[in-house]
Amino acid sequence: MTDNELLSLLLKDKTREKGFSLLVKNYKERIYWQVRHMVLSHEDANDLTQEIFIKIFQNIDSFNKESSLSTWIYRISLNHTLNFLQSKSQRYKSNIKSLEDSMLDNLKSDKYFDSSDIELKLQKAILSLPEKQRIVFNLRYYDDMPFKEMEEVLNTTQSTLKSTYHFAVKKVQDMLLDDEKDKFSFPN
C-alpha cells in the first residue's frame, strides 16, 4: 500500500483505525531501529516508539501534505528522540559521568546487544560524534537512508549532509585500529 492510499484511509473517520493499523505495520520496524540506534537501550527505544506512534495518531489531522508521509513520520520520530536525549542529558549535567558514558556502560550489560569489543568500540566512536553528525551517520550507516530523503527529513542540503557524513565516517575510522576499520563497510 502506498503512502497516499494510507493517508486517504487515515484522514477519514470511518477508516482511520484501519489506516493507522496499516501505518504501524509499515513503519514500526523502521521507526524502532531509527530510535534504537540513537538511544541504544531497547527499553527506551520501545517506550519512545510507542509514544511516537501515539503522537502520529493524535496529530494526523495536522499533516499538511507539504512533505511526504514518510518524511513527516521520520521528523516526528527524530524530534521526539532528540527531545528525550536532551532532557536525559540535562539530568546528567551535575553528574561526573556523561550521558554518553552512561549509555555505553549500559550497553555493555545489555542482553539485547552483541557486546563484542569491536562493536562496543564502534558505538563508542559514534557516541563521540556531535549530535548532528551522529544523526546523519546513523541514518546513513544503519538505516541506509538516501541523502535525498535525509535532506527533507533534516531540512538540510544534500551537499551539507554528504560532507557531514564524510567527516563523521573519518572521525569514526580514526577511533578504530587499521584492522578494525577494515571490518566495517561504510556506505558513501
Binding site: F20, S21, V24, K25, K28, E29, Y32, W33, R36, H37, L40, H42, N46, T49, Q50, F53, I54, K111, Y112, F113, D114, S115, S116, E119, L122, Q123, Y141, Y142, D182, K183, F184, S185, P187
Partner: peptide, 23 residues
C-alpha cells in the same frame, strides 16, 4: 570480510507485540 551487522537485538516476536501495544 566487511560487514554492516546490526549488533542490536530485540526480544523474540517483539515487533508483533509492539504493534499490539501501540494499537
Amino acid at each position: 570480510m566487511k560487514t554492516r551487522n546490526n549488533p542490536f537485538k530485540v526480544p523474540e516476536n517483539y515487533f508483533d507485540s509492539l504493534e499490539k501495544d501501540i494499537l
